[in-house]
Simulated scan of single mutants.
Amino acid sequence: MSDHSVWICPTCGGHHAAADAPPPACVICEDERQWVPPTGQRWTTMAELAAAGYRSDVRELEPGLIGIGTQPDIGVGQRGLLVRTAEGNLLWDPPAFLDEQAVQAVEDAGGLRAISSSHPHMYGAMADWAAAFDAEILLPEVDVPWLNRPVPRLRTWSGSLPALPGVTLVQCGGHFPGSSVLHWAEGAEGRGALFTGDTMLVTPGADRVTFMWSAPNRLPLPERDVRGIVAAVRPYAFDRIYSGWWQPVLPADAARVVESSAERYIQFLRGEAVPGGVR
């Protein structure tokens, strides 16, 4: 590995400040919402990943929306979302790896005005994206201490933020205090879409969502947090949900599904669930 590298944790994908040697530990992985491999902490760099054959995976998901992932996966494996507007583009949940292919794809799509993320596990390579396009990073104020690498332009916010026309960032809490979603009014053919990271997780059948304080460690959210997430998104019209990965996507009727899924989740928390459930 080269001297003075930006250090990347391959377990969570977190980036740490450039230094001659890696940090002694990854603070994100040592938190109870994540995990350290039984074999111990490992580190890599962008150059090492490129040499190992990592590459960007760019796909159009619907008009005005481009997905940017990594092959093979690194960290939590998120797929970023580039939403396009007449006044600039916003990148959501950027993956941990970045190469010229991805930069060129975004350049071809009109560049990049802003970057945001659902929560610290998905900050990814946002500093590199910001530097490449002189883009502004928009993060909930309460979660900024989890940003382990200096970024060139940072604007903090709380509650909600109209980031671009028809693109609104909404703080929901739950998984992290600043856990957020992005509402895209023009998504789903004008019916509205939510980008949720894992603030809300679309389940494998693509017909429900669920809520977790820690997905890998199977730790649930309490009722108050689930109700807080649902209340935060209730003012927004949306018919589709893209969570943090290529699949699954909740294609339609998403606002109703969020409400019914939350009530079912709370039934289990209270010990009131009966077999069969609700749809």
Rank of each mutant, 00 (worst) to 15 (best):
A231G: 14
M126V: 14
P23W: 09
T44A: 10
P95A: 08
P72Y: 11
D198E: 13
P177I: 02
I137K: 01
A232W: 07
L65P: 10
H119P: 10
L154R: 03
D108F: 03
S118Y: 08
N148T: 12
H119N: 15
Q104M: 05
G192A: 02
C9M: 04
I229R: 01
P63A: 03
M200N: 01
L91R: 10
T39I: 11
R153P: 08
H119D: 15
G53R: 11
A252S: 14
C12T: 09
P220C: 00
V76L: 12
G13Y: 01
F211R: 05
A109V: 06
P150D: 10
P216R: 01
A52V: 09
L91V: 15
S243E: 09
A232Y: 06
T168C: 06
L49Y: 13
V274F: 06
G197Y: 00
D93H: 00
D128F: 14
A50N: 13
A51G: 13
C172V: 08
D239A: 12
S118F: 06
A125N: 07
Q171M: 07
I28H: 13
P72G: 13
G80T: 12
L154W: 01
T44R: 05
Y265F: 15
L147W: 07
G111T: 02
W157Y: 15
S117W: 10
P152Q: 09
R234A: 14
G53M: 08
A25T: 11
A231V: 11
D225C: 12
M200C: 05
P220F: 00
A50S: 15
